[in-house]
Nucleic acid binder design. Structure first.
Lengths: 239, 239
DNA sequence: GTCTATACTGCGATAGAC
DNA sequence: GTCTATCGCAGTATAGAC
């Protein structure tokens, strides 16, 4: 039947309220004006349709250029993706480790700030962050490995923060790896549904999820089962 | 340079431990043997490379058939995706509402069982679930709407469970929508990283996340700030 | 640095033999 | 119900004029 899925015009993508975010602020001085606009257009296209369903024509049309113009600024479509994903991961890491983080006293307060920042960053840049999270597999293997390293360093920041609280007794003796995965899932999964014109600002959502994260580690369980739950029956239907 | 991203042979996909799950059990009696094998192959391909990067040749080669054979059993590639996503959402909903759920007494225990089942289902079928969560945009608009309705019904089950606990005083007076989003994010985001040969069985992870979910709603905050956190300062760096 | 035009490749889907 | 062969088209990337 239809050879191609119905897609959207550059203008429709640019105006879609679900695709509004602050990604144009991400690129910094290492790019000129036209490359920056191309990256912003690519972020929208990749987020809306995925890397493989996005054509170089789509990206270029988003800034009013011909497809050939893209190759003056980037050597390939894959490298456009690589730049987006690399910068996104670098900025997110820099943001959580940002100003005054080492002056935050106490494991609980430190974790609260880290999760609030991580969440707020993903919300504020949710369109770019969506590309960073979901289009990774489209990268060439060596580019993928580079990003994995950045992700690992980011995860380590959170593992260290939780481990410190466990060691000094601020937190319950939780399984650090499993709990951190859960916390980061909150901050990551929001890129599926968040929109800037929704009820929560990035900072409000950050505060809310930071509160949930703290509840995960503060030992306040009424029955003492907080750390281990391997033996409970649960009506797990076969299926 | 390279016209096409390096991909994987059907054999490599079939043997990849990261792509092992129980999706072959999903299809039920409404399909014959060959269609079931095609769906299973398509799940692997879509999960590994995405819908648009998967060719009908890939899907067919996964079961040793020619590309033309696929069209005997399915009218289009898009309809293969639709069947996968529809069945995945139907099975997940049926699983959380599964046997004896209405006999579970108490809001806390009921929520615990719901989250444990939801999580375990997504873990057990994580490859198919990944397609269900991440390839939705590739559906035709009317098929997409059908899935949205299924997702809405699933979410309602969780919202009702939390709301009941809030009403009867079992839970703290949390914001139901925001808390439920957080809980479901735990169960959904695991499809990004879960593997069956990892340290946690689906049921163990289900129990663990059910414990985290309960901590989100049980009012045990030491300082009484549990419900509202809108006014706290948080060192939110500009960036 | 941008354009138009196009080379080359590979995709979704179909035709028709067996 | 499966195959081989192929149609028509869309995609990335390049050539060469301006």
């Amino acid at each position: 039947m239809a050879k191609r899925q119905a897609r959207f015009t550059p203008q429709e993508l640019e105006d879609d309220p679900r695709l509004q975010d602050h990604s144009p602020d991400l690129w910094g001085d290492e790019f000129g004006d036209v490359p920056r606009r191309l990256l912003t257009s690519a972020v929208r296209c990749f987020a809306a349709n995925g890397f493989h369903a996005t054509t170089t024509r789509d990206i270029a049309a988003g800034v009013g250029l011909s497809p050939a113009a893209l190759y003056v600024h980037f050597p390939s479509k894959e490298l456009v993706l690589h730049e987006i994903v690399r910068i996104g991961h670098e900025r997110a890491l820099a943001h959580v480790q940002g100003p005054e983080i080492d002056s935050v006293a106490g494991a609980a307060e430190r974790l609260r700030v880290l999760i609030a920042r991580y969440t707020a960053w993903h919300a504020r840049h949710h369109v770019a962050a969506r590309v960073c999270q979901y289009e990774l597999n489209a990268l060439a293997p060596d580019h993928y490995d580079e990003i994995r390293e950045l992700r690992h360093r980011t995860n380590e920041v959170f593992r260290a923060a939780v481990a410190r609280g466990v060691t000094d007794g601020t937190f319950a003796p939780v399984d650090v790896n499993r709990v951190v995965r859960g916390m980061l899932s909150l901050g990551i999964d929001l890129v599926r549904w968040y929109r800037l014109d929704g009820p929560d600002s990035p900072e409000q959502l950050g505060e809310f999820y930071a509160g949930l994260a703290l509840k995960m580690v503060l030992d306040t369980a009424p029955d003492g089962h907080s750390g281990d739950s391997s033996a409970r029956p649960t009506l797990t239907a076969s299926a």
